Simulated scan of single mutants.
Amino acid sequence: MTLPFDVAAVRADFPILETEIDGHPLVYLDSGATSQKPRAVLDAERGFLERANAAVHRGAHTLAAEATELFEDARVTVAEFVGAEPEQLVWTSGATAGLNLVAGSLGYAGRLREGDEIVVTEAEHHANLIPWQELAARTGARLRHIPVLDDGTLDMRAAAELIGERTKVVAFPHVSNVLGIVNPVAKLVTLARGAGALTVLDACQSAPHLALDLPASGVDLAVFSGHKVYGPYGIGALWG
């Protein structure tokens, strides 16, 4: 069997894979939790700290100007990666922070009240569940769950029954971090739009593996994190 890429060359791009465990080459199978970092990322981080480290947007001296330019260039690069415009992208400390920002903002803005409904799925990462649980508890809204069928896919018949006139938010993962199932974004967006509900997409697992065009997807908001797409810890993005 011919592989579509040179496995040895790919492994060589990740210094950590030179590690041996009990005399055997490291085999890393936990990229769904966090990805390892290739040399390009490690070199870029080190290069910034060695040559351009300064306060971003808070200084007028040469290093501060250079750091700010690199900071905003990164926003352009990441926005292009998901088919978006730079001004549509907010830096966060991670996807969890992005989801908490959305849920908290909706609560403070008074967008939900008693009797309203938030719809999620039974296959949520805690980061896309707990913020909505807390928002429901704070506002008196009801949290409802789209069931998962025996084959791991969402029960779209049940989804059509759950999403209705009381639904204010539909939050769901693009790809399940547990099952690997790719959820039908377009169908869920259509159901949510029909109810006048806001859609929030957890794109953490799809960003490393699928070509994303968030504006074309029809969702209102989306989050993803750097550390699952070969990037650094402590950085994520909220798109809207």
Rank of each mutant, 00 (worst) to 15 (best):
E114H: 10
W239I: 15
Q88R: 14
A9Y: 05
L106E: 08
L149M: 13
E114M: 09
K37E: 11
H57A: 10
V120N: 05
L42M: 15
G180R: 10
A54F: 10
G94E: 08
L129P: 01
E134F: 12
H145A: 13
V10M: 07
G98V: 09
T34S: 15
G152L: 03
A203R: 09
S176V: 11
A158P: 06
L149C: 03
L154E: 12
R39C: 08
G194V: 00
S206D: 12
A103L: 05
R142V: 14
E69L: 10
L162Q: 04
W132I: 01
R157C: 05
E114A: 15
G218L: 01
A197D: 05
A195T: 03
H61N: 09
H61E: 12
V185A: 00
D220S: 06
V56Q: 04
G240Y: 14
P86T: 04
A95Q: 13
V170P: 03
N128H: 10
P147N: 14
F224H: 11
P232N: 06
G218D: 02
H24M: 14
T121Y: 06
G180K: 09
A171Q: 08
L212N: 01
E18V: 02
A195N: 02
L26Y: 05
L162F: 07
P25E: 08
L221Y: 12
D202K: 04
S225C: 13
F172W: 05
E87A: 11
P15G: 04
L238I: 01
Q36G: 02
R51T: 15
D202H: 07
I16Y: 06
L106C: 05
E122H: 13
G152T: 07
T34L: 12
A8Q: 15
D22E: 15
T2L: 13
L198A: 08
M1P: 07
L149E: 14
E20V: 13
S31V: 09
A54N: 12
G115F: 04
A159R: 08
N100I: 00
L101P: 02
D155M: 05
Q133T: 10
K228H: 11
G226D: 07
V102H: 07
G107E: 12
G194W: 02
A67Y: 06
L99K: 03
L201A: 05
V7E: 14
V148Y: 06
D6R: 09
L42T: 12
E45K: 10
W132R: 02
T92D: 03
L3N: 08
D30E: 12
Y108F: 13
E85Q: 14
L3W: 15
E20D: 10
V169P: 01
L162C: 12
S217E: 01
L17T: 12
